[in-house]
Write a protein that binds this DNA or RNA. Structure first.
Length: 432
RNA sequence: GGCAAGUUACCCAAGCGGCCAAAGGGAUCUGACUGUAAAUCAGCUGGUGUAUGCCUACGGGGGUUCGAAUCCCUCACUUGCCA
């Protein structure tokens, strides 16, 4: 993968003497099992795992928190197992408000492949403490219902299962909960047990919203094997303004460049709130404590320069995509937002900037409305008209007053920049 | 298995024969102010495009009626109580 070189540049901050100290400083430990024991366990190389369920064709920023936590642990000498939920994805973990719709087996299997592929870009699968990929379908598919109920189910008390947040929230909601989703915690417990047996895996990491499912495994191992194993739960990343983190225009930010372009990724991070940017640098970059302290000062003294946001955007875009794509995204952002005068840019700069944006090929003389729809800036003609009425639409940075105005190419070029609002830009390439 | 209540747009939720493309929140989007920030204020939010039109939409299907989100039947799902 193109990001192998990026992996090689990563390291933990040597100013921390214990990996747990660094994780805590980065705000990555929301909950954990007994800290003393955890600290002791982490002082020598251990094997740990984190699971990713195939609920979509790509991982998103929430998963990136997990991936980076795993990577930091790997850099500290521990052995990561990246688990893809070929089995748990067929069942579905309980969401707080609604029952999931089951995806068919082919879809889940295809998504498993995609998630596995993405995992390979964030962890090192070569070298001395190489990561390994595991799929829980490998050990669950061989269980018969009877074996499952006798060997695993017997260790679970319904009272305790019901009291877990994810389940009780659903029991108290209108949606209720199916037996299928109710059983999810048992499957996750089984995963940990199997990995403990097969790989001597003694720690699991995951999101704090999964705490109930994480403890399912430690409890099971304690009962069956009489051993204490460990957990680290990362906090749910939230924004200072209370809005959901990791969404842009209501859509998730995906790690797959087909779903979220490097440019969109860069823009997302560039728009990080001042109040959040330092926390984000800690969680999503490998900058050291000292470097981040410098940015903290910059944010306090000259927030309008947005140095921290720029660095954050560049770093994370490189991490998720590549150095080259990250720099292109940055250059495109500078070109399109910078001077305000697109005419001063040469065709080459502008073309490469537009390549980062959604775009459409249209015949000369096409209507502005057509361009808005064709580029995907709006979803319907009505929405396009509404946007124009609201004064949201510009062509080549010049505001459009009426839908009848001509869609002119920029200067002597055969392209135009069309925008809805300040941040939604698209390119139009004229043919003929 | 029985009884009761419920299923409304992205989410919550009102409406209980015509004035319903559906109140009110929330969320997204847009404008102003700014730093591509936050906060604040304002506006939009089914489609078609200009027709007091038409199409689609109040869980699915069927019916009553000039007219149904609203009444009836039926199916599915959800919740609660009883078994």
């Amino acid at each position: 993968m193109a990001t192998k070189e990026t992996l090689n540049t990563q390291s933990n901050d040597p100013s921390f003497s214990h990996i747990l100290d660094e994780l805590q400083w980065r705000g990555l430990v929301a909950l954990s099992t007994d800290e003393k024991e955890l600290r002791a366990a982490l002082s020598k190389p251990i094997t740990f795992y984190c699971g990713f369920d195939p609920t979509a064709p790509s991982l998103h920023l929430g998963n990136l928190v997990q991936l980076l936590t795993m990577r930091r642990l790997q850099l500290a000498g521990h052995n990561p197992l990246a688990l893809v939920g070929g089995a748990t994805g067929l069942v579905g973990d309980p969401k707080p408000n609604s029952e999931r719709t089951l995806n068919d087996r082919e879809t889940v299997a295809a998504w498993v492949e995609k998630l596995a592929e993405q995992n390979r870009r964030f962890l090192d699968f070569d070298g001395k403490n190489a990561a390994q990929m595991v799929n829980n379908l490998d050990w669950t598919s061989e269980y018969s219902a009877i074996d499952f109920l006798r060997e695993i189910g017997k260790h679970y008390r319904v009272g305790k299962m019901i009291s877990k947040d994810a389940v009780s929230a659903r029991l108290n909601s209108d949606a209720g909960i199916s037996y299928t989703e109710f059983s999810y915690q048992i499957m996750q417990g089984l995963d940990f047990l199997e990995l403990y047996r097969r790989y001597d895996c003694v720690m699991q990491t995951g999101g704090s919203d999964q705490w109930g499912n994480l403890t399912s495994g430690t409890d099971l191992i304690h009962k069956v094997e009489g051993k204490s194993v460990h957990l680290i739960a990362t906090p749910l990343i939230t924004n200072a303004d209370g809005k959901k983190f990791g969404k842009s225009e209501g859509n998730a930010i995906w790690l797959d460049s087909e779903l979220t372009s490097p440019y969109a990724m860069y823009q997302f991070w560039l728009n990080t709130d001042d109040a959040d940017v330092i926390d984000r640098l800690k969680v999503f970059t490998f900058l050291t404590r000292a470097e981040i302290a410098e940015y903290e000062q910059m944010v306090a003294e000259e927030p309008f320069k947005r140095e921290a946001q720029r660095r954050l955007a560049l770093e994370v875009t490189e991490l998720v995509h590549s150095k080259q794509e990250s720099e292109s995204a940055r250059d495109a952002s500078l070109a399109l937002f910078g001077s305000g005068d697109l005419g001063s840019l040469d065709q080459k700069t502008l073309s490469s900037a537009l390549a980062e944006l959604p775009s459409a090929k249209l015949p000369r003389g096409a209507k502005i409305i057509e361009a808005l729809v064709a580029t995907g800036l709006v979803e319907s003609n009505s929405e396009a008209r509404r946007a124009i009425e609201q004064g949201a639409v510009s062509v080549n940075k010049v505001k459009i007053g009426s839908e009848d105005e001509a869609l002119e190419p920029l200067a002597s070029m055969s392209l135009a920049v069309i925008s809805k609002g300040k941040k939604n830009l698209a390119g139009v390439f004229f043919s003929g």
